[in-house]
Design a protein around this nucleic acid. Structure first.
Lengths: 333, 333
DNA sequence: CTGAAAGCGCTAACAA
DNA sequence: TTGTTAGCGCTTTCAG
């Protein structure tokens, strides 16, 4: 249980001042080659690692970013959340920032004093936390929620457009009876995908009968119920737009179990581009959203704000993209 | 962009010393009611939050824990990893510790100087990181890997036993032709579940024909291949033990597609107790391992080591448990 | 190119 | 119960 070596130990061994050691650590150019190599030797000798707390305190700045995610059940098993975590984690590693991870119930205020910036993975029931963070002065950015009423940067996918392109594709194939299984409508993504769907149908004068909109929550479970409901309708849909790939997959499973053929009997389009959908009986046609990239962009955004060098666009909207595979075709006559 | 209030501002407004403020912040009992309420008023007035870096520096101690996870592709989409993250996150929140999240490729040394303790979510290709962390003197704990050759605490499930109880159940049902789809055999869990499987079969003198062990990697993709292989055998198995629920699910899907009935034609047991397996056409019989609890236990373990109060058991092995549902029955005569 | 000295904001003896 | 006083380990002027 040895004491950790400090900058003083290194300085003593290298026979220089702690200032010089500090310079070497921070790659300052103003150190003679001789001193530099002596310091490096001493650093190696002691396996010296600077104390991050001391650095942060002295610099008055913090190179760690907080990722706050809503803690509602199931979110951590969604492709969405995982991709964000991966993207944020990866970008942090590249930029040598620490990722501190907060799960929030929406009530406990997260301690923003402790991080240099914070990413809100979504804003569902935690607006107050965003406001508190903003008020405290830490740089913030919101992912996947166009918070236009808040003075905060965001990086979001255009989910209305996502709903539209999925629907457009189905309509272009000739479908007139299109149902949807929505995501959790408390999430902006869920609400906007539905909006895109309804909006496009209206524009094309395609009716949306009662029972064609099943209010889901992104879970496989509800997709199962939804699919069963749709099948019981007197006029079952010939195509289904599911607001997540997980739900689309479960829908397909139900349909297959009932002996239906995909896409011959019924077409499905999902949302996410979850790689799990490449395998299985029928490769899923879906709407791809650049989750990983969004997450990375959020980290870079904060990095610029924290370090103060560079400029950023405050509000970024990314376009989703249709990925055509095998789960859709024209309806049978 | 106001400057953050410091303890001095609070002290000045409350007309006390900074020490008293510090005492209030840290819930010391030795503060008069009067002073306490004045400090509280001032804290509220300034919305004062202590600077965590300064606290850590002054205390010489760090209440944050690092979670190190291997970064190989796909891990973040596994039930296993997600449950660990959830468990660690939850426990950290309860204990007021920060969770700093490290994704590692096994090469970059993680900076342990920066956390009070570290949890290794598994030890696959990162033994050197564990050794480095240990050498640096930070408290460490390993989850789900019985690293008996390292002087470090661990909390692990008995995966050999897990493989045994799954096999035992199948054997007790009367099966003689049992195949397995293994996990990634580079993981201890994968190797040990296979060991339990083989060991039990040997004990019961049940032959294990060539082709009955498919070396998988926990992914759905390989489960699909495995299932197809098994079906092509001249003597297909009447039961399959899959080393993860994901693989079991995909196996069931393949079997169902081929027109087989579960469990009448073939029995399946999985591993994990992933809630996704409750739904679907046939509820999966599986081996439950307490992932969330393991993760929580790891955090508590470190918390004790870091704060120095309390005692801990250094090596903990948890027993897995069979969860019987509907995917197994006796083989047809 | 180098080092002395003054903090960063807070905690923890130690006295009072 | 309170305040004074040293640091915690590092960065950063500012002289030299």
């Amino acid at each position: 249980m040895k004491n950790k070596p400090s900058i003083h130990d290194v300085a003593r061994r290298a026979k220089v001042s702690i200032t010089t050691v500090s310079r070497v650590i921070n790659n300052a150019t103003t150190v003679s080659a001789q001193n530099r190599s002596r310091v490096e030797e001493a650093v190696a000798f002691y396996k010296f690692k600077p104390n991050v707390s001391a650095q942060r305190l002295a610099r008055g700045m913090n190179n760690s970013i907080g990722l706050v995610m809503p803690g509602y059940p199931g979110i951590f098993h969604s492709f969405y959340a995982i991709e964000l975590i991966r993207g944020v984690g990866h970008a942090c590693e590249v930029l040598h920032m620490d990722l501190v991870f907060h799960i929030t119930n929406g009530f406990n205020p997260i301690n923003t004093g402790n991080v240099g910036g914070v990413i809100f993975a979504d804003v569902i029931e935690n607006r107050r936390q965003v406001e508190a963070a903003l008020a405290s002065g830490v740089p913030c950015v919101i992912i996947n929620n166009k918070a236009d009423d808040l003075d905060v940067g965001y990086i979001a996918v255009d989910n209305v457009q996502g709903g539209e392109i999925a629907t457009d594709y189905l309509v272009s194939l000739g479908h007139k009876k299109i149902a949807t299984i929505t995501g959790n409508l408390n999430t902006q993504a869920g609400a906007q995908r539905l909006k895109g769907f309804e909006q496009f149908l209206e524009k094309k004068n395609i009716p949306l009968p009662q029972g064609y909109v099943y209010q889901g929550d992104y879970s496989r479970r509800c997709a199962r119920f939804a699919a069963e409901q749709f099948l019981k309708l007197k006029e079952p849909p010939t195509a289904i737009f599911a607001a997540s790939d997980d739900m689309a997959l479960e829908t397909m499973a139900v349909l297959l179990e009932k002996g239906l053929k995909i896409p011959e009997d019924i077409s499905i389009v999902g949302f996410d581009d979850n790689p799990a959908c490449l395998f299985g009986p029928v490769a899923l046609t879906t709407v791809k959203q650049p989750l990983f990239e969004m997450a990375e962009a959020a980290v870079r955004y904060l990095h610029v704000l924290i370090t103060g060098n560079g400029a950023v666009r405050k509000k970024t909207t990314l376009a989703p993209e249709l990925v055509v595979r095998e789960s859709c075709s024209s309806p049978k006559k």
